[in-house]
Computed example of a mutant assay.
Amino acid sequence: MGKAPGLNLALAMSHGEIIVTLDADSMLDERAIEWAVWHFITFPRVGAVTGNPRVRNRSTLLAKIQTAEYSSVIGLIKRVQRLMGKVMTVSGVVAAWRRSAIIHVGLWNTVAITDDIEMTWKLETHFWDIRYEPNRICWMLGHRLSHLLIFVPPWLRATFFGLEWRHRSYYLSLSAFRQPMD
């Protein structure tokens, strides 16, 4: 089926208002859910909370590169985006979603290259707030070079082709940089 249809099915079968998604090669830190729930309770316009993925095993060269990428580049980008008032993408590795927001924007798109980026854009265009919580830690397995062929291509495709034609108005408008509704 793929990840997006699986997420839509899981949403239909679940009962809670907060939906937590996590990659199969990851595990949540013991307080990660509490850090996400705080945002949803405190701010009713929060549609998603992205977390702070960290590499657990750093034994291979690729895992060490991933550690640098997640610790410096991705974390720094998310922090700067939040200071600007707009987190542009939720990390699919670790995310929490408001059920009513997902339903409001029409569920996960089953033909999108990456489900997390597509859902973030849908939430943003419907004025849902996206949050980054650095204390919401998720531990990922560091990958070997052979895993690179399995895990990276969707991410690369989304990076190079992510500004899909149907989202052009969102990125060309100044509303993408509106202030957060705190």
Rank of each mutant, 00 (worst) to 15 (best):
R45T: 15
H15L: 09
A24P: 03
V111C: 07
V37I: 14
T110Q: 04
W38N: 03
F161S: 08
T159N: 07
M1Q: 09
Y132N: 00
A12F: 05
R178F: 08
Q66H: 01
R45Q: 12
W128N: 02
M181N: 12
T42C: 10
W165G: 06
D182S: 11
G75V: 09
K64P: 02
A68D: 09
I130W: 03
R54V: 15
G162M: 06
S72G: 13
M84T: 10
K64F: 02
G85K: 05
S91I: 09
E69G: 08
Y132V: 02
F161T: 09
T89N: 06
T67K: 10
L141D: 15
G92R: 01
M140V: 06
R79E: 07
G51L: 03
R166M: 10
S100T: 15
V90G: 00
A176G: 12
K86L: 04
M88Q: 05
G16A: 10
L62T: 11
I150E: 09
F151R: 11
R79K: 08
L172C: 14
E34S: 14
I117T: 09
Y171K: 11
A68L: 12
R58A: 08
V73L: 07
L145F: 13
A101N: 00
I137W: 03
A48N: 02
K122R: 15
V90M: 05
L107C: 10
K122A: 11
I137C: 06
V49N: 01
M84G: 10
K64R: 14
V73G: 03
R54K: 12
W165H: 13
L107I: 05
M88R: 02
G47F: 05
W128V: 07
H104I: 09
T21G: 08
T120C: 15
Q81F: 02
M1A: 09
F43Y: 12
T159D: 08
I113Q: 02
H143T: 15
R168Y: 12
E118R: 03
G6E: 03
E164W: 12
T89C: 07
F161G: 06
L11Y: 05
G75E: 07
K3Y: 13
R45I: 10
G142Q: 05
N109K: 07
M27D: 12
K64M: 08
F177T: 14
S169R: 11
N109G: 04
G47W: 03
V152P: 01
P53K: 01
V87M: 00
K64A: 02
A63V: 06
L148Y: 06
R157C: 14
R157T: 15
R45A: 12
V37P: 01
R178W: 08
F161A: 10
I18D: 00
V20K: 00
I150A: 07
P44M: 03
I33E: 10
G142A: 06
